[in-house]
């Protein structure tokens, strides 16, 4: 029921994680702070894909396209119209959502594997369009540069202090986790799950499945778009190569590895996929091999993901309370 969004154990885990991130600048050097920034961005991307892939069961392997649309929207608005970068967040969310709804509309009814193929194509089309300087706005293969750094309450964030971005990115993560837990505990979240479990039964029960497929795509894309804004603000330079199909594959991997449909699982998946290759740097060129092997072993022995969780929407006491209420 709505008054309880998560179990106590999960709440404690979040509190510990938040404290660890907050205290990280005391213990870590600038390099590792930047790794944490990267983790934060990928957590956001993975959570946004999780709405589409994990909750609604729609195989989207072109998620980087929405990330790119958001990043470029912000970069264009910032460099051409000099709108402060963080103010472009709503615009990039909106543009990414509209773009997703537009491109998903003709293909979203496709069954799992077919949709996967189409979304791979979508990701490539977006990347190639950016390389070809579409509308003369995207700067071609060089991308866009000179994006101004964000200013918060008159304070300008700089790359010399990566911890400032750490707080910006992870504050956004915290808000996202809060909102997405509320979402999964709602009529909307249930509708996405009905869609994943059995779309025919969902439609036959009165759920407008076409609408919810589009909404899942639009909402996931909106969040990926806003993550693109944060990325553009942090990098000040963006180029098409940051949004290639490998990005889509990696985000997809994070969701499946962590546990599709599980918010803490997906966050863990994102953290591991970013941090493990950093730890394996000692293996030099073999690190991706090790990483690939870990993935394969995982999928064979734990296909449900590292941290699947059974979403507990209702407890006995909730149902009693609901019945007793007038």
């Amino acid at each position: 029921m709505p008054n309880r969004t998560m179990t106590r154990g999960l709440g404690i885990a979040y509190a510990i994680a938040a404290a660890a991130v907050a205290a990280a600048p005391l213990a870590l050097n600038a390099y590792w702070i930047d790794v944490l920034n990267s983790v934060g961005l990928y957590v956001l991307l993975a959570l946004s894909l999780n709405l589409i892939l994990g909750d609604a069961g729609l195989f989207n392997m072109g998620h980087a396209a929405f990330y790119a649309v958001g990043a470029y929207t912000s970069a264009i608005l910032n460099t051409r119209l000099e709108i402060p970068i963080l103010w472009t967040l709503p615009a990039s969310a909106l543009v990414a959502a509209l773009f997703a709804a537009l491109v998903a509309r003709p293909v979203v009814h496709l069954r799992g594997d077919y949709l996967l193929v189409v979304t791979i194509g979508l990701g490539e089309i977006v990347r190639i369009a950016l390389v070809n300087d579409v509308f003369g706005l995207t700067g071609g293969a060089n991308g866009l540069f000179g994006i101004s750094r964000p200013t918060i309450f008159g304070h300008r964030l700089t790359s010399r202090k990566p911890q400032e971005f750490l707080y910006l990115i992870w504050a956004f993560v915290a808000v996202t986790v809060f909102l997405f837990h509320r979402l999964e505990q709602s009529r909307f979240g249930r509708a996405l799950n009905y869609l994943r479990e059995d779309p025919i039964a969902a439609e036959g029960s009165g759920v407008n499945t076409a609408r919810y497929r589009l909404l899942a795509f639009a909402l996931g894309a909106a969040w990926a778009g806003m993550t693109g804004t944060l990325y553009a603000a942090k990098m000040t330079i963006i180029s098409p190569e940051s949004f290639g199909s490998w990005e889509s594959v990696v985000i997809f991997l994070m969701v499946i590895l962590g546990g599709a449909g599980s918010i803490p699982g997906v966050m863990l998946g994102a953290a591991l996929v970013v941090i493990l290759p950093e730890l394996f740097r000692g293996f030099a060129s073999a690190r991706l091999l090790v990483f690939g092997l870990v993935m394969m072993v995982m999928m064979v022995f734990r296909p449900q993901g590292l941290l699947p969780y059974r979403l507990l929407r209702f407890k006995e006491s909730d149902l009693r309370r609901a019945e007793d209420a007038p």
Binding site: L183, S186, F188, A191, D198, S205, V207
Partner: peptide, 29 residues
């Protein structure tokens, strides 16, 4: 039988209630 097998009975019944309720994503947030 086409139920949402992985969901509890009460959430299966709530699927039928879906078209008589209206809260969307914004209301969930």
């Amino acid at each position: 039988v086409r139920l949402f097998q992985q969901l509890p009975a009460v959430e299966n019944v709530l699927a039928g209630r879906h078209c008589r309720t209206r809260a969307g994503a914004l209301a969930a947030f």
